[in-house]
């Protein structure tokens, strides 16, 4: 009899208690929180300041999706070798995912392939899908170059020289943009010269090229180079060549406003940063991530830079 009561009462009671605990505990949001994903963001610059908007996007995404960012800068800007070393170190150090702004496809191909086997690798600007990178966030580089080239046609008469800055040696987005722009300009009968700084600082190389080639238009294909070119051209005696370029930062916006830069092709850097981190986090969590269409970009000039949409694109809302 005693045993029967024990069985009848205590066992179901205990199981009900267990059930209750499970019920009570499960919906608690704190206990459902997922482990943060540790993302290594390998940049191409020595400084995160230039990438302010993209960084804000990354941080926003990290906060939204519970990720931890490790922003890694280089000691030498645009060094593929250094990126490779960083990439290998981060992957072996147990990063949950990598966001990479590749400096050079060739140098990085192998290590990206290797890294992609272990963690999701998302590249920005330069698509490295062929090397196994899981996602790419950036504008259509060829289209951007073409658009920039077309925009520049107004600024340079046929026969005059356009100087294109190949600021990042290697196979990357800058190269793609440059080639597309060069193709447009050449077919329209403009002389195209390419300035490759190589080992020298870009500013020095540009100065030399300016004095030698006397171009009527200079074109840069990434934010850093555009900023440098803007500051170099300021020091050049009048008439300074027009400056076209790709990239968006407050410094570039200021240059645009002050007329140092004539036109830019800009994408929403905040969105780029956000999407890159989102892609990496989702992939690291084994969720699906459709590589979206390339980001949209627009050609901005001084006249339209304060239009509401351009404002939203150029200036992140300060929080």
């Amino acid at each position: 009899m005693k045993r029967k009561i024990l069985l009848q009462l205590v066992v179901p009671l205990l199981s009900l208690c267990m059930l209750f605990l499970l019920l009570a505990v499960q919906p608690d949001p704190a206990s459902r929180s997922v482990e943060p994903v540790e993302l290594s963001v390998i940049l191409r610059e020595t400084d995160t300041a230039a990438l302010n908007a993209a960084r804000q996007g990354m941080e926003q995404a990290a906060a939204d999706l519970n990720a931890e960012l490790r922003l890694l800068t280089l000691t030498t800007a645009g060094s593929g070798e250094e990126q490779r070393a960083l990439l290998e170190r981060e992957v072996s150090g147990g990063a949950g995912g990598v966001v990479l702004v590749p400096a050079d496809r060739e140098t990085l191909a192998d290590s990206v392939r290797q890294a992609a086997g272990q963690v999701p690798v998302v590249t920005m600007e330069t698509d490295m899908g062929e090397s196994g990178a899981k996602a790419w966030v950036g504008a259509d580089n060829a289209a951007l170059g073409t658009a920039l080239g077309k925009a520049a046609l107004n600024g340079v008469r046929p026969g005059e020289t356009v100087l294109l800055l190949d600021s990042l040696s290697g196979d990357n987005a800058v190269r793609e943009r440059l080639e597309a722009a060069a193709a447009v300009l050449k077919t329209e009968g403009r002389t195209v010269e390419v300035c490759t700084p190589g080992e020298r600082p870009l500013s020095d190389a540009l100065k030399t090229a300016l004095s030698e080639l006397r171009p009527s238009l200079v074109m840069a294909f990434e934010a850093g180079a555009l900023e440098t070119a803007a500051s170099v051209l300021e020091t050049v005696e009048q008439p300074a060549p027009l400056l076209y370029g790709a990239g968006a930062s407050t410094a570039i916006a200021a240059g645009l406003e002050q007329g140092r830069i004539t036109a830019i092709a800009a994408q929403n850097e905040f969105a780029a940063g956000y999407l890159a981190v989102e892609a990496a986090v989702r992939l690291a969590r084994h969720q699906t991530w459709e590589t979206e269409d390339p980001l949209e970009f627009s050609i901005l000039r001084r006249e339209n830079m304060y239009e509401p949409d351009s404002q939203k694109l150029l200036f992140p809302v300060i929080r």
Partner: peptide, 9 residues
């Protein structure tokens, strides 16, 4: 989420 809206996300 103003910035996200501005960025079209």
């Amino acid at each position: 989420r103003q910035q996200l809206i501005y960025a079209g996300l």
